[in-house]
Computed example of a mutant assay.
Amino acid sequence: MSQAPQPSSAMQPVLRVIGLPHLGIGPKIAALVLALIVAATILAPWLAPHDPLTMDPLVRLKGPMEGHPLGTDNYGRDILSRVLIGGRLSLVIGIAAAVVSVILGLVIGMIAGFFHTADAIIMRMMDALMAIPAILLAIALVALNGPSVGSVIAAITIPEIPRVVRLVRAVVLGAREEPYVEAAIALGSSTFKILTRHLLPNTLAPLIVQGTYILASAILTEAILSFLGAGVSTETPTWGNIMAEGRQFFRIKPDLILYPGVMLSLCILSINLLGDAARDMLDPRLKKRAG
């Protein structure tokens, strides 16, 4: 009787992380909180009691009341609706920036690690990008392209790419000297086959961990850009824009910043806890130390 093919040893850690076995209580709570936040933002059009852009000056800066569970802002807009709808765009921008930066960094890093002639040129370019503070580079890119979702995603993505490139390059440089890779080269395997079949699986585990940190950083960076007025249009509700509008009324109504700030903090904390849990499961040295 034929047996089902078993996953390669390089893919087994990735499958273990996808299954999330043996999580501690902290990561389990983080996963639950993150799932609730994502579900609330996805279902925001049905959960939000009002249109987030509808203004009612008669009820401006009111506390919790009938029809407005969290009160209203300085234009009489419902805070709960704005927090829920704003979370959708904040998460979309963060996820898009994380995915694009990981994909581009993976491709560039594999080229740099495998082709020695391209390594010096690529890494000097990455060093030049990393020499510029990420937030300053992001603000400059948004200023050049104008405030829009696409420009914010690009502004967050470009500073993150060098970090992914350096990680992938280090993994590829180590795996390239392994006997099975040298054997594949000696047998005349194509470069594409060596990169995708032998080297790519080795990069997946560290990329999962790095991707979680990039996601948290991207969500926070979007909020910082919006708070500074360098993000998406101020009329568009995001967690950063909501806090930016509420800062001038902080003394009389601090919950204008409190509610989106709590959502932002819980989201980033949950992602970081899950990233730490994934790192603990994927890093053999940490597993051996725990054992």
Rank of each mutant, 00 (worst) to 15 (best):
S265K: 00
V149C: 05
I252V: 15
R289G: 08
A30K: 04
M110D: 03
G24T: 13
R163L: 10
N74H: 14
G150N: 04
G94S: 11
S90D: 06
G26K: 09
H198I: 10
G291Q: 14
L199E: 04
G94T: 11
L167R: 00
T41H: 10
A216I: 12
T117H: 14
V33K: 04
L207G: 05
I37G: 03
P7W: 11
P5T: 14
E178C: 08
A134H: 11
L53M: 12
A278W: 11
Q12K: 15
M125I: 15
L269T: 12
Q248W: 11
D255I: 14
I132K: 06
V168E: 01
S90Y: 04
R82I: 06
P284K: 07
M1C: 09
L266S: 01
P13C: 11
S226L: 08
R82Q: 04
P45D: 03
L61K: 04
I224L: 13
F192P: 00
M126K: 00
A44D: 02
M1I: 11
L269G: 07
V92A: 15
A138C: 08
R285P: 03
Y259H: 01
A223E: 01
S265Q: 05
F192M: 13
L32S: 12
Y213C: 01
V100R: 05
P21E: 12
A223P: 02
M11S: 12
L53Y: 10
P237L: 11
Q210F: 13
G150W: 07
T203H: 12
Y75Q: 13
L36R: 02
S9C: 06
S233M: 14
I132H: 10
S217N: 13
S2N: 13
G211Y: 09
V142S: 01
V107C: 06
R77Y: 01
V209C: 07
A183L: 15
L273K: 09
K193S: 15
G246A: 10
L207P: 06
E178I: 07
S217M: 13
R251F: 14
Y75D: 07
A223I: 05
A170Y: 02
P64Y: 05
M65S: 12
V171F: 07
L106Q: 02
P45A: 03
L32Q: 00
L220Q: 05
D127E: 15
E182C: 04
L47Y: 00
P201C: 07
V17H: 10
S190M: 04
I85W: 13
E178M: 15
T72I: 08
P162V: 08
L137G: 05
R163N: 06
A131E: 11
G211C: 10
S90K: 03
F115Y: 13
E245T: 08
I18T: 10
I18W: 14
P5W: 12
R197D: 13
G76V: 11
P162N: 01
L225D: 00
A48P: 00
I25M: 13
A186G: 05
N202A: 15
M110N: 02
L136M: 15
I208D: 12
E177G: 03
G231P: 06
